[in-house]
C-alpha cells in the first residue's frame, strides 16, 4: 500500500509553548485515520500544518510524495480541507459556493454542472441548491462544506473535528459518507476528533497527548494491548485502596478521575476477591472491555474525558 501522508519529526512552537514535540507517523493511501486527543493536545496545530496553513518549526510533511512544507502550492492540489468552522460564503447560494470552489481547484468547463449536480444529490442538497447558505441550518451548512471539499475528488481529505456541532444521527451519517468515499474512490481520510466512539470506527487511530503521539494503530489492536479487561472501582478512599491492592495482590491500580482503575486479564474473577478482601470499602465495581479512553489512560495516566 502506498503512503498518502508521511510526517517525520514534526515540531511546532508558539512562542515558548511547544505544541508539537516531534511527531512521526504515516497514513496509508485509502485509510480512514483519526487523530484522537483532548483539546489542547496539538490536534489543531497538526491539522493546520497538514493543510499548509501553518509552517512547522521543523520536521517534514509529505503529501503523496510532495514536500508540503517546502512546496505547499503543489501539495494543495492533493488536498481537500474541511475546517471546523465553515469556509463557505453565506451570501452566496449553495451552487455558487460549489462553483467558486471548483474554479479555485482548476475544475471548469462543460463537465462542471454535472459534477456539481452529482455532489448536490449525494449530500441531499438538490432542493436547496439555489438558496443562500446563510438561510441553511448548521447541519446543512456542514453538508455544503463537505460537498465542497469533495467536489474536486482530492486524494487526501483532512477534516478538523468534522462532527463538532452535529447530532448523533448526523455524525453517524457523516462517518458513513466518509467510509463510502474511501470505498468508492479510494480517498484517504484524516480527521481530528476528541470523541472516542468516532475514532473507534476508523481504520487507524493516532492518539495525541501534549504534542506527542502516545499510541498508534488499529482501534482493536490498541485496546487489545491494554491487557485484558479494565476494572473500575468506586470507593471511599481510592488512594489507600490503591496502595492496599498493590501490597496484597501486587496489582498496579491507578486513581483516575476519582476512581480506581485496574487493568487485568479475566478481571471478573478478581471482583469477588477484592470485594471480600476489603469489606465495606468498595461501593461499586465494574468490569469492562477496554475502550480507547482506557488506551489513553494506559499511556498517559489521565482520562481523556476529564481533559476534554
Amino acid at each position: 500500500m502506498s503512503t498518502a501522508l508521511e510526517i517525520a519529526d514534526l515540531r511546532h512552537q508558539y512562542g515558548t509553548r511547544e505544541s508539537l514535540r516531534g511527531l512521526s507517523f504515516s497514513v496509508g493511501a485509502g485509510d480512514v485515520f483519526a487523530l484522537l486527543g483532548p483539546n489542547g493536545g496539538g490536534k489543531s496545530t497538526l491539522f493546520k500544518i497538514i493543510c499548509t496553513l501553518l509552517r512547522p518549526t521543523s520536521g517534514a510533511v509529505d503529501v503523496f510524495g510532495v514536500d508540503a512544507v517546502r512546496d505547499p502550492a503543489r501539495a494543495r492540489r492533493h488536498l481537500g480541507v474541511v475546517f471546523q468552522h465553515p469556509a463557505v460564503d453565506p451570501w452566496l447560494t449553495v451552487v455558487e459556493n460549489l462553483r467558486t470552489h471548483a474554479h479555485l481547484y482548476g475544475l471548469h468547463g462543460a463537465a462542471l454542472p454535472r459534477v456539481i449536480e452529482r455532489a448536490l444529490e449525494r449530500f441531499g442538497l438538490t432542493p436547496r441548491a439555489h438558496e443562500r447558505v446563510a438561510t441553511l441550518s448548521g447541519g446543512l451548512r456542514r453538508r455544503v462544506e463537505l460537498a465542497k471539499a469533495l467536489l474536486t475528488e482530492p486524494p487526501l481529505v483532512v477534516l478538523d473535528e468534522p462532527s463538532a456541532g452535529l447530532d448523533p444521527v448526523a455524525r453517524r451519517d457523516l462517518l458513513q459518507e466518509l467510509t463510502r468515499l474511501r470505498d468508492d474512490a479510494g480517498t484517504t481520510i484524516v480527521l481530528t476528533t476528541h470523541l472516542m466512539d468516532e475514532a473507534a470506527v476508523c481504520d487507524r487511530v493516532g492518539i495525541l497527548h501534549e504534542g506527542r503521539l502516545v499510541a498508534i494503530g488499529a482501534p482493536d489492536a490498541l485496546t487489545a494491548a491494554v491487557g485484558g479487561d479494565v476494572l473500575t472501582i468506586e470507593c471511599r478512599d481510592p488512594e489507600r485502596l490503591a496502595t492496599d491492592l498493590g501490597d496484597r495482590f501486587g496489582v498496579v491500580a491507578r486513581v483516575v478521575d476519582g476512581r480506581l482503575r485496574v487493568e487485568r486479564p479475566r478481571a471478573h474473577e478478581f471482583v469477588p476477591i477484592v470485594v471480600e478482601a476489603f469489606p465495606g470499602e468498595v461501593q461499586t465495581i465494574a468490569v469492562g472491555r477496554p475502550t480507547l479512553d482506557d488506551v489513553f489512560v494506559h499511556h498517559t495516566g489521565a482520562s481523556m474525558k476529564v481533559l476534554s
Binding site: 493543510c51 465553515p86 469556509a87 463557505v88 460564503d89 470552489h101 481547484y105
Partner: peptide, 14 residues
C-alpha cells in the same frame, strides 16, 4: 472572520 478566506488559502491558487 467567516472562514471563507482559509478555504481560499488552502486552495491551489497563487
Amino acid at each position: 472572520q467567516e472562514g471563507f478566506l482559509q478555504g481560499v488559502l488552502v486552495a491551489p491558487v497563487p
